[in-house]
Design a protein around this nucleic acid. Structure first.
Lengths: 254, 254
DNA sequence: TAGTGGTCTAGACCACACC
DNA sequence: GTGTGGTCTAGACCACTAT
């Protein structure tokens, strides 16, 4: 029972360092290893879970990157307070975002169809030819409160595109892209700004034209490192704020 | 000359994986190893630079995290296009930010003195007692263009505080904190929003009260993981935008 | 089948903190 | 000194990609 690999080989292949990572993470989440206290030494963990110190260090290294642990040379490895484990900006869509805030994500599709790509889109999506792109404009809600307007441009073939109905059924664009086209998020580049809404935007968002909106444009790359969407989003500043964790580049020489 | 450790021991101790990291990074930056091409195999690098494959993998792992390389199981390790290496949001202050944009950072100190800490500040700075905190309010410029107003609260002792003149001389608060108090940045938690400026803010920033400003509040932790400042910043949205790279949490199972 | 990156081992020595 | 984390080695085997 003390072997970290007790979950055996019903799975294709279990990775020891992943098992150990999960094991330690669970102990911390459950409070079994308290905040600011040390965890067992690397050598003790290696012995206890019948593995090598290298593997233990790999699991701990990833827990450090997730803000769970913090090692001090010569002193030990400490559990970080819960603050450090929160608000790291993850890569996900509106649906996950609202769900994480215990809200009810809804959407209304305002536009859905193919349009020619302008120069900016061709650059952002790294398009070479003159193929049209799929434009989807949606009004997003948390339950009945309008939370934003999102306009996405997708480099998909007209022949293999999904339908408006499929998008409504899936609820989330990213979910649909994963299911239908095997596209999974890898990373995104965002630019955040602010402005006042147009009359049309204010009306959709139930705002006054004197209110303030946050703007965000994003290029999202899929796991094959090809752009899978360019999207422009606007949010009422009174209902939405960005939370970011910024970490120091810990790998530059002095 | 092929030994990665040829820079020898005039330095306190050179780390092989850091040397190799820098060596590979330089080859990529110089274009010697071209975009989208493979780099030599791990085994070849290990032999060429007289080191172990483990050390090579550690250097490559960090280059992957910095967006320089991308490995595919069974195929090789590839140089990523320059896009992937840009706009990762780093942890630094206004001064570095402006310098990175080839601007000229300037500042005007509007307030400098000790004030009592309210409940929000005590929470953000994790203060227990009733000691006053140092409040510094500054108007920041890129050359002669007002770029923002920053109000920082620092948990420093009145007895050991620096002076207004020292701050002006250092030019950067973080530089001064590093020099005088040995405090170095580790990570920060930011919340970004937007609103309209007050009459006083608009005047300082040379805006109309109908313009829009980005707001950012930040708690910065130093390397000892204690809060070193709480700061509220406002920027004219017309002159400043946030750029962020968001990465997927690559370490969740399934 | 050959070659690649991914995982893992069982050690070694070093630098740092604490007593 | 003793014990900690940090670096490094010289292998081994596995999983995946290509031919």
């Amino acid at each position: 029972m003390s072997d970290v690999n007790s979950s055996q080989n019903n799975e294709p292949h279990s990775l020891k360092y992943l098992d150990l990572f999960t094991l330690i993470k669970n102990k911390i989440d459950a409070g079994e290893w308290a905040e600011n206290a040390t965890i067992p030494t690397e050598r003790e963990l290696a012995e206890r879970y019948k593995t090598s110190r290298t593997t233990v260090r790999k699991a701990i290294e990833h827990l450090r990157q997730k803000g769970y642990l913090h090692s001090e040379h010569g002193r030990g490895t400490f559990v970080l307070p819960e603050l450090s484990r929160r608000s790291q900006r993850q890569l996900h869509g509106f649906t996950d975002d609202i769900l994480a805030r215990n809200g009810v994500p809804r959407q209304q599709i305002l536009e859905f169809g193919f349009v020619p790509a302008n120069e900016m889109l061709r650059h952002a999506l790294q398009l070479s030819g003159n193929r049209p792109v799929l434009r989807i404009k949606r009004l997003r809600f948390d339950n009945t409160t309008p939370m934003g307007i999102q306009t996405a441009w997708l480099p998909v073939d007209e022949a293999h595109a999904f339908t408006q109905e499929e998008l409504l059924e899936a609820g989330s664009l990213y979910k649909l892209l994963a299911q239908k086209m095997g596209l999974e998020l890898l990373e995104a580049y965002e630019t955040i700004g602010a402005r006042q809404p147009s009359a049309a935007e204010a009306s959709l968002l139930e705002l006054s034209v004197n209110d303030v909106i946050l703007t965000c444009s994003r290029v999202t790359l899929s796991v094959n490192r090809k752009p899978m969407e360019y999207v422009e989003m606007i949010y009422p500043a009174s209902r939405y704020a960005y939370e970011i964790k910024i970490t120091k580049d810990s790998f530059s020489r002095k």
